[in-house]
Simulated scan of single mutants.
Amino acid sequence: MANAHNSHAEGNHGSVKSYVIGFILSVILTAIPFGLVMFPSMPKDITIMIVVALAVIQVVVHLVYFLHMDRSAEQRSNVSTFLFTAMVIALLVGLSLWIMFSIHTSMMAK
């Protein structure tokens, strides 16, 4: 009975190989934007888009390699909880920015 519990607990954790892959990808996805910002060679708009895209990719890398979120049945509730939380945060931030922008334009119209 103890072996069944231990094997189930070990199934949720990643291997050393997956942690190393996640770490290397995280370092690469951090070094590229750092280099783009420290040594500007592109227009600001393109640099910002690249940095944001690499940030989103890095979030996915952290979710997959460190938090072990995947499409398996065991992780379905965790993934749905994460997606709901991300949606609520996006709505709160997006709508707050929209309200502040609307107030700003209304106040500046005078």
Rank of each mutant, 00 (worst) to 15 (best):
N6P: 00
V16H: 08
L91M: 04
H8C: 08
V59D: 07
N3L: 10
S26W: 02
L95N: 11
Q58L: 09
G35P: 00
H13M: 12
V16W: 09
K44G: 00
I24M: 12
L83Q: 08
I46K: 04
A90M: 05
H8W: 15
F34P: 00
L97N: 09
M69H: 09
L95D: 02
L67V: 08
M69D: 01
I48G: 01
E74T: 09
G11W: 09
A4K: 10
M1C: 04
S18N: 11
I89N: 03
G14S: 06
F82A: 14
A90Q: 03
T30I: 06
P33I: 06
M69C: 10
H13C: 03
S72T: 12
L25W: 07
I89F: 11
R76S: 15
I32N: 04
N78G: 11
S96L: 09
H13R: 13
M87F: 15
F84L: 14
S7T: 13
V51Y: 01
I32C: 00
M107E: 10
M100R: 15
F39Y: 12
V64I: 15
R71N: 14
F66T: 01
G11I: 00
T105Q: 13
E10R: 09
E10W: 02
S15G: 14
P40A: 01
Y65P: 04
F82G: 11
N6K: 12
V52G: 01
S18E: 14
H13Q: 15
M108I: 08
W98C: 10
K44S: 09
V16M: 06
M107W: 12
N6H: 10
D45Y: 04
I57A: 14
A4N: 14
A55V: 07
S77A: 15
S41R: 07
L54F: 07
A31Q: 04
S15V: 05
G14I: 01
